[in-house]
Computed example of a mutant assay.
Amino acid sequence: MKKIATLTLVTAMGLGLAACGETRNERALSGGLIGAGAGAVVGSAVSGGRASGALVGGALGAAGGAVVGANTRPERRREVCYGTNRYGERYRVPCRY
């Protein structure tokens, strides 16, 4: 029962932090760190508290998290921009950044 609670907690924390970073490198780094932490906890829990399980789990989690984080894209913010014509009426225009 303790293993299931640990796995559930780690999964919830990982999903909560999954959207960290805006650039590809930031997402790869945050995915790797989240994966390493989650993999170490899971590896330790599965191997009965051995350090070797934590090390293997951390390494696999870091590699997997970095790959997944680098290949995801954040949602684009949907901003609405308006312009005004010569009569004072507002209309939608493409946003410029």
Rank of each mutant, 00 (worst) to 15 (best):
R77W: 08
G14S: 11
A63V: 14
A66D: 01
V67M: 07
Y87T: 12
T11E: 02
T8Q: 02
V41Q: 07
S47C: 00
R86H: 14
A12P: 07
R77E: 10
E26R: 10
G88K: 04
I4W: 15
E75T: 14
A62D: 07
G31V: 09
M13A: 15
G21H: 04
L9E: 08
L55V: 10
R24N: 05
V93W: 00
A36I: 05
L29P: 00
R92K: 08
E22C: 04
L33R: 06
K2S: 13
C81S: 02
E26Q: 15
A38H: 00
N71V: 01
G31H: 05
A45F: 01
R92M: 08
K3P: 15
I4K: 15
G49W: 01
V46A: 06
R96Q: 11
E89D: 13
A51D: 06
M13R: 06
A59F: 12
E79R: 08
E79L: 07
E75H: 14
G14T: 09
L7K: 04
G88I: 05
A18W: 14
T11G: 13
G43V: 00
T8R: 02
L17Q: 09
A63Y: 07
G21Q: 07
R50D: 09
G49V: 00
G14N: 11
A12I: 11
V42Q: 05
G39K: 02
G37M: 06
A36Y: 04
G49R: 04
S47G: 02
A59L: 15
E89S: 12
A12W: 05
I34S: 04
R50C: 07
Y87W: 15
G32H: 02
G43A: 02
R24K: 14
V93R: 07
T11C: 11
R27P: 09
G58E: 06
V10G: 07
Y82L: 10
A63N: 02
A59R: 04
Y97Q: 12
G53W: 00
G58N: 05
Y82H: 10
K3A: 12
V67N: 02
R78T: 09
A62F: 09
E75R: 15
R73F: 13
C20A: 14
L60G: 06
V80A: 11
A62P: 09
G57I: 03
E26P: 04
S52R: 11
S52V: 12
K3I: 10
G64M: 05
A51Q: 10
Y91Q: 11
A38V: 08
V56L: 12
A54C: 06
R86F: 14
E89W: 02
A18L: 08
Y97E: 10
E79A: 12
M13C: 15
N85H: 02
S30A: 13
V42G: 00
G58T: 04
Y97G: 13
G16E: 01
